[in-house]
């Protein structure tokens, strides 16, 4: 899949934003006033900014509101609704904390649940796609949730939880890679099933339908070199998990925490780049590519 910056930014930052909101909703930390403002500002910057970024790749962003209509079937619609609802709830909750030092905890819990729902629905946009076998697995939502909550914990200063969640995310990520690498093959979709010509023999793409490129090829066919991918995986592991955990395990220091956060963010961006770039859409088979 084409690793478009808009979707990378969207999933990374809205994930972090909603992760942070989740902990804020649970009252961890139980900040109020300016402290709360700073936390909420960061969370909203991530969540809303990410959502806005996701509209960059729309052909008609001005119609985005229509995307909220199909919650019955569409994970994208559900995600939109969950995000908007959560942001509204958390705005009331956050407003209470910041302006009135008022802690409407049940509302916070509701918001936290909304955050979980948002992160989950986001992940399901990808996980639902049978066409991308690497994503079409429980590990996708699990990883999205773990990463968001872990990143959120990191941002919210819940370091012990962050360490646990980052460890879990890292492990999940490794599992996702290991299991994901074979999933395209395991899906049973091949050039033979794509063309229905397998009964004759082995199938090879000869001439594509056009000598230039097209939307499908730009969007779905992205070949990452194996060596390249391996290096990026190691880097993302180091930056996303190893460095932050190491820093958190050391003595606490705001600067170090900041570095841990920055490292984590860069790590997650790399992960997300790989998430898209390494995901192979079955349509590539029609072009003899994966």
């Amino acid at each position: 899949m084409h690793p478009a910056p808009s979707v990378i930014i969207f999933t990374t930052f809205s994930g972090l934003g909603f992760g942070l909101l989740f902990w804020l909703g649970l009252g961890m930390p139980a900040a109020t006033g300016w402290d709360a403002f700073v936390f909420f500002a960061i969370a909203y910057l991530g969540a809303v900014g990410g959502l806005l970024a996701s509209t960059f790749h729309l052909g008609h962003p001005e119609r985005a509101i229509k995307a909220l209509s199909q919650w019955k079937t569409s994970w994208l619609s559900r995600e939109g609704i969950a995000a908007v609802a959560t942001l509204l709830i958390m705005a009331v909750f956050g407003g209470g904390l910041v302006l009135f030092e008022m802690r409407l905890l049940p509302l916070g819990w509701l918001g936290a649940a909304g955050c979980l729902a948002t992160i989950f629905t986001t992940s399901m946009i990808y996980a639902q796609l049978k066409t991308v076998p690497r994503w079409n697995h429980w590990s996708t939502p699990a990883l999205f949730v773990a990463l968001s909550l872990g990143g959120g914990a990191l941002l919210s200063g819940n370091f012990e939880i962050a360490i646990l969640l980052l460890l879990a995310s890292g492990a999940l990520q490794i599992f996702a890679w290991m299991s994901g690498d074979g999933r395209f093959k395991a899906s049973g979709t091949t050039m033979e099933s794509a063309t229905g010509l397998g009964h004759i023999g082995s199938v090879r793409a000869f001439e594509p339908p056009h000598t230039g490129t097209n939307y499908l090829m730009r969007e779905f066919i992205h070949v990452v070199g194996r060596k390249h991918a391996m290096q990026l995986r190691v880097i993302s592991m180091l930056l996303g998990f190893v460095v932050p955990i190491a820093l958190l395990l050391g003595s606490f220091n705001h600067w170090l925490a900041l570095i841990a956060v920055a490292s984590h963010v860069v790590g997650v961006i790399t992960l997300r780049w790989l998430f898209f770039a390494q995901a192979e859409h079955v349509v590539g088979l029609y072009y003899g590519k994966r």
Binding site: M1, H57, L58, G59, H60, P61, R63, A64, K66, A67, S74, L76, I125, Q128, L129, K130, T131, V132, T189, A194, Y215, L216, E219, F220, H281, V282, V283, Y286
Partner: peptide
């Protein structure tokens, strides 16, 4: 009604 999000194209196995 289409916002051009592209998700349907992602979901279609056939291009």
């Amino acid at each position: 009604d289409c916002i051009g999000c592209g998700l349907c194209a992602w979901a279609c196995p056939y291009g």
